Computed example of a mutant assay.
Amino acid sequence: MSRPTDTKARIHAVARALFMQQGVQQTSLRQIADQLGITKPALYYHFDSREALVASMFQPLLADMEAHLAALEAAPPSDPRVLLGQHFDLLSRHRDLIVMLVRDFSILTELDLVARMFAWRHRLMTLLVGPAPSVEARVRAVVAIGGMADTAVEFPDVPMDRIKPTAIEAACAALGLPPAPRPPVRAAAKRPRRAT
């Protein structure tokens, strides 16, 4: 017999696929139940509304983002390149949810996420450019953070580990940071000449 957590994971997977395909507002709990091969009351046992299902799917992202920012704020100031790399890793872990948000803005309203996302960005900006930056520094930070996040959505079929180095360098360039030093190129070992 499957455990409740297994069933919830299956519900999340089917709902995610349908939400990505046709949007949250156009997907009913009946469609999700039919795809799962269960009755609607069985689905209601786990989620009493579509809103509760969506909130449950996004809870890991919300908790992860809050914990991520709190840990960064509690730690000594970090190198911006390291901080951006850690933030990119968080975006990578929740890429499918971020793509879903961008494809269906109704989720932002449904979960009351707009103010929360602006607050997250402002906290990250403070970590990158300090508590009282110039307008120019704030603009650079917005471009860096937003542009890096957009790569997760713009290139859905490209592995995130391939995108990461370029995204971080582009974000650092937007912040006005110098390029990362390149590792020295090792010269090829010379082959000894053969005696003729």
Rank of each mutant, 00 (worst) to 15 (best):
M1I: 07
S2K: 08
R3T: 15
P4W: 10
P4I: 10
P4L: 08
K8P: 03
A9E: 13
A9G: 03
R10E: 15
R10H: 13
R10F: 03
A13F: 08
A15K: 06
Q21R: 11
G23S: 08
V24M: 10
Q25T: 11
S28K: 03
Q31F: 06
I32A: 00
A33G: 03
D34L: 04
Q35T: 06
Q35F: 01
L36S: 01
L36T: 00
I38P: 00
T39W: 06
Y44R: 09
Y45A: 03
H46L: 12
H46G: 13
R50N: 14
E51R: 14
L53V: 05
L53G: 09
V54P: 04
A55D: 13
A55H: 09
P60K: 14
P60D: 11
A63H: 07
M65R: 11
L69Q: 04
L69W: 05
A71C: 07
A71P: 01
L72C: 15
E73Q: 13
E73S: 07
P77F: 08
D79M: 01
D79Y: 02
L83Q: 10
L83G: 04
G85H: 00
G85W: 02
Q86E: 15
D89P: 07
D89Q: 14
D89W: 10
L90G: 05
L91E: 03
R93G: 14
D96V: 09
V99W: 01
V99I: 08
L101P: 07
R103P: 02
D104E: 07
F105C: 04
F105K: 11
L111D: 04
V114S: 13
A115C: 08
F118G: 12
A119Y: 05
W120P: 04
R123Y: 07
R123M: 07
R123H: 12
L124Q: 15
L124H: 12
M125K: 07
T126A: 08
T126W: 03
L127P: 01
L128I: 05
P131D: 12
A132W: 00
S134E: 11
R138T: 13
V139C: 07
A141W: 01
V143L: 13
V143Y: 06
A144F: 04
I145Q: 11
G146L: 06
G146C: 08
G147D: 08
G147L: 09
M148R: 07
D150H: 14
D150Q: 15
D150F: 12
T151K: 03
A152G: 08
E154T: 03
P156I: 01
V158G: 02
P159F: 06
D161N: 08
R162C: 04
P165E: 04
T166V: 09
I168G: 03
C172Q: 02
A173S: 14
A174I: 02
G176V: 08
P179G: 00
P181L: 05
R182H: 01
R182P: 00
R182E: 13
P183C: 00
A187M: 10
A188H: 09
R191S: 09
R191K: 11
P192N: 12
P192M: 13
R193Y: 00
T196H: 05
T196Y: 03
T196R: 08
T196M: 02
